[in-house]
Design a protein around this nucleic acid. Structure first.
Length: 309
DNA sequence: GTCCAGGATTCAG
DNA sequence: CTGAATCATGGA
């Protein structure tokens, strides 16, 4: 292991307080798969071409970067939404009339959607189907270690699409991708000759963006929603995974609803910050702390005939 | 051994 | 169009 050569720890100025529990959930809760907890309770990670370390402090968060590199602070501030746009968005969520959401927010107060690079989000969630967060992190780390460009200190960027498209088959298999190797390979082949694909996708309205994403092999409705949310900053996107199915079924009385119906419910009920609400519910459910519906819930009016429109 | 994991794809009806 | 089977891998 090479010596990283870190700069001194410095406080990171965030708009809202970030409790230690929320801090860990934000880096380790299945948004990004690029952060690794160290023995000293700090976290090291790579986002884009930035290498950084973060740790919770008594009042907020501290950071450090690699000696000789461009300061990681501006990238960290953007990545963690230091300007506070999401704090404003939380205020517009219906937590005043929704006790389930309010309880979920109180479990991880200050939780935010990480503003990830589109490629990082797409590659990560291409690996996500039928896998646990821990294993997705291992797959992404293996791809970076075997195929990514070195950034010094033993850290590596994610491999680009061209590298993934032409990577040896045995190498991809060694990343424990399983059948997802074909997803990664297929999407890489589609995007390797489109250096500006992310900008082109970003220019699309959200519905068109999700449709375009779903043309890529290995990208279905849920992965597209995650990439739109985490990689393209579409905070209104509402990914429905097994945890959200469970959460909405038990706490909102929506048992038996199909994912597409639940997605429509989530977007309609939570509005412009639906993706943020989704992350609060997802994290609370995964922690086993989501408040159960105590009686007949008055929120939904029962399954709709068709999620058409 | 069985079940499940931040699902997508393919196929049968 | 909908629902079931299948996919590769590892941890509980």
């Amino acid at each position: 292991m090479e010596s990283p050569g870190w700069t001194p720890w410095r406080p990171l100025r965030l708009a809202a307080n970030l409790p230690a529990g929320t801090f860990a959930e934000q880096l380790d809760g299945g948004q990004s798969f690029r952060w690794h907890k160290q023995a000293d309770e700090s976290w090291t990670g790579v986002f884009g071409r930035t290498v950084a370390a973060l740790r919770p402090a008594t009042s907020g968060v501290e950071w450090r970067g690699m000696v000789g590199a461009v300061s990681a602070e501006p990238a960290l501030l953007a990545y963690l939404d230091a300007a506070g746009a999401q704090a404003h968005l939380v205020e517009h969520l219906p937590w005043r009339s929704d006790p389930v959401l309010r309880a979920a927010i109180e479990i991880y107060p200050g939780l935010r959607i990480l503003r990830q690079d589109p490629q990082e989000a797409l590659l990560g969630f291409l690996c996500s189907s039928n896998k646990r967060i821990l294993q997705i992190r291992a797959m992404v780390a293996a791809m970076a270690d075997k195929l990514g460009e070195s950034l010094g200190g033993g850290f590596r960027a994610l491999p680009n699409w061209r590298t993934l498209a032409s990577a040896d088959d045995s190498l991809l298999r060694a990343c424990a991708l399983g059948y997802r190797a074909a997803y990664v390979r297929g999407t890489a082949k589609r995007l390797q000759d489109r250096p500006h694909w992310a900008e082109e996708f970003q220019a699309l309205p959200t519905s068109a963006l999700m449709a375009e994403l779903q043309l890529l092999p290995g990208v279905g409705p849920k992965v597209a929603a995650c990439v739109a949310l985490f990689g393209f900053g579409r905070l209104e996107s509402f990914p429905v995974d097994t945890w959200v199915v469970q959460a909405l079924g038990s706490a909102y009385g929506l048992k038996g609803w199909k994912p597409a119906q639940l997605e429509q419910f989530g977007c309609a009920h939570f509005g412009e910050g639906a993706g943020l609400a989704q992350q609060y519910l997802f994290s609370a459910a995964r922690a086993g702390l989501l408040r159960q519906a105590s009686g007949p819930t008055e929120l939904p009016q029962g399954p709709r005939p068709k999620p058409r429109g």
